[in-house]
């Protein structure tokens, strides 16, 4: 596809543009680090759009500067009371500056936009890995084609390879968006949508539901972890295997509490009697980056608070407050944290 050449052709200018552009933004407060920024792309799709953005940005700067210069000129020089009011109609100026020049710019922008659009949906090579992502109110269910096992709010992908992502929703519309990797694709009720990801470098990339999906739309984040192929394969094998078995007494007591409690009605822990499907699969809970799809960090304290009453953390989520014995809670936490 010619788009690849185009991106390559544009690269020499891109750093300059970025530096100057960021400089402008720095004046206003700085290009923030740590952000899931579209201007800090790490994936093929996002990089292409970043290039498009800088092109559009510079066009915009020029157009804005032109209009402001004319406006300033008028305000400065046409205000003196001795100015003669001209009766000529500068129609030609209006037509050329207001329609002719914009038309040429728009034509070019439209052409570039079409090329980038065509390139967005075509990974260079056919994807070897397929991820099935299902949107729920308000979390992401993640499965891998051909792998029996599920995780939540976390997608691991092999770095440098295109990965197909199939998107479904069980309830309302959501939108799958990992700003540093790929523009968004909506999850449409009753339909299956597809997109693809390709991370250029290993790392963790924050994503978030971008389509308003109700009460806890704010807390529907996910994380894409791009890792070397070998690590990814090991992780995938771990995902397919039964959950870890308890090692310590505390963990064993915790498992018992888990299996005897109400948890099993909604959650699955592979290899145990817990096979609920309402909430996320907990088989690898301990290894995940957050609780409640980005609501709180995943550590013992937050986990305890979540179990006792997640409604204070993420009001409106589907998990009711749990009547857990205060004495049994540490064991339960220990067990769940051991699921890695």
């Amino acid at each position: 596809m010619a788009g690849g050449e185009w991106a390559g052709h544009r690269r020499p200018l891109a750093p300059v543009a970025r530096i100057v552009g960021c400089g402008l933004l720095v004046l206003l407060g700085g290009c923030s680090g740590g952000a899931p920024s579209t201007l800090d792309p790490a994936g093929t799709g996002a990089r292409r759009v970043e290039g498009l953005w800088w092109l559009l940005f510079w066009i915009s700067v020029v157009v804005f500067a032109e209009v402001m210069a004319l406006l300033a000129w008028a305000l400065v020089f046409r205000r003196r009371p001795d100015r003669r009011i001209s009766r000529v109609e500068p129609t030609r100026f209006v037509v050329v500056a207001g329609a002719g020049v914009p038309f040429v710019i728009l034509l070019a922008a439209y052409g570039v936009g079409l090329r980038d659009l065509a390139a967005l949906r075509q990974p260079e090579s056919p994807p070897a890995v397929t991820v099935d992502v299902t949107g729920h109110k308000w979390w992401w269910e993640v499965r891998y084609a051909g792998v029996d096992g599920a995780t939540a709010n976390e997608i691991r992908i092999p770095v440098g390879e295109p990965v197909r992502v199939r998107l479904r929703t069980v309830d309302v519309l959501h939108s799958f968006w990992v700003p540093q990797l790929m523009p968004k694709t909506d999850l449409i009720a009753g339909k299956v949508r597809e997109t693809w990801l390709r991370a250029e470098r290993p790392g963790e990339y924050r994503g978030q539901c971008a389509e308003y999906c109700g009460l806890q739309h704010a807390h529907m984040a996910l994380q894409v972890v791009a890792q070397p192929r070998a690590e990814f394969d090991a992780w995938l094998a771990r995902l397919a295997a039964p959950a870890a078995t308890p090692d310590s007494d505390a963990e064993r007591r915790g498992q018992q509490a888990f299996l005897q409690g109400t948890c099993v009605a909604c959650h699955t822990v592979r290899g145990t009697a817990a096979t609920g499907t309402v909430g996320p699969d907990l088989s690898t809970l301990g290894a995940r980056w957050s609780l409640g799809a980005g609501a709180v960090p995943n550590d013992g304290g937050h986990l305890g608070g979540w179990i006792v009453n997640s409604q204070t953390v993420k009001p409106g989520n589907a998990m009711p407050p749990q009547p857990v014995d205060a004495a049994a809670l540490p064991d339960l936490i220990a067990y769940l944290e051991s699921l890695r």
Partner: peptide, 19 residues
């Protein structure tokens, strides 16, 4: 006319059912 031609260009560049 410009819009129709622009649309025609899109039809030349993009296969009809590519998503």
């Amino acid at each position: 006319l410009a819009m129709i031609v622009f649309g025609g260009v899109a039809a030349l560049v993009l296969p009809p059912c590519q998503r």
